[in-house]
Design a protein around this nucleic acid. Sequence first.
DNA 1: GCGACAG
DNA 2: ATCTTGTCGC
Length: 251
Amino acid sequence: MRNPYPSIERLMEIQYRIASRVWKTLQPLPRPPRRAVGLDAAYSRRYGGLAVAALVDTASGRLLDYSVALGEPALEYIPGLLAFREAPLFYTAVQHLREDFDLAIVDGHGISHPRRAGIATHVGLAIGKPTVGVAKKRLHGSEIRVQDPSSCSSHPCVLGYLVDDESRRMAYVVLPSRRTRNPIYVSPGAYIDLGSALQVVLSLLRGTKLPLPTHYADKISKRLARMLDEGAVSPRQLKKGLRRIEDFTGG
DNA sequence: GCGACAG
DNA sequence: ATCTTGTCGC
């Protein structure tokens, strides 16, 4: 893949600038979101990256719609610089959604990032809406445990949080369900604070390892990527819009 | 030099 | 992220 980006050092500088911009937007959410979008990406050997934006009704938990974006990633995967690889696709997928929404959950970290500017933060500033980062692995910060998994009385269960080198709390560590062994990391992306981010995610964990929006985006992106490689669908069919929600809902 | 290291 | 079979459990 060709890299249209400036040097690694320059990309990191951009993130410091993004972090300074997002800092004052980390405020409590005025009201609970009614419609939330989940963003995730999968990879097709034949066509490259495939991002999916899955729209979910928060009250019912139902998948309302989804959109896709296809394209060769502009950068290889580099820890800390994931946003420069996947955020452009996420942004495009979001623009293709026909329905409106009030919050997005991104697969990856928000401010629990070495420069306080994870992919959820990049996306939040780009779309101008609240975003929450939900990652499956820790990227930055040390974990403070406040609860032992075996002592969780109900699920999801908050096990602790992630702090930076100045003891500032950046993310919550949550055990989604009783059966899941590994926790997930919840952090604010933009236009939302840590407490609200946690509440939103807890309310969308319904027995799944990931909150519903991201859960659906993950399933859909993986299936479509496989379908592309098997020749079951063509890129233009996807771009034209192939939305068979029943296939992912159980209807 | 030795680890750590989202997806 | 992706490469991959069987297997344990509700």
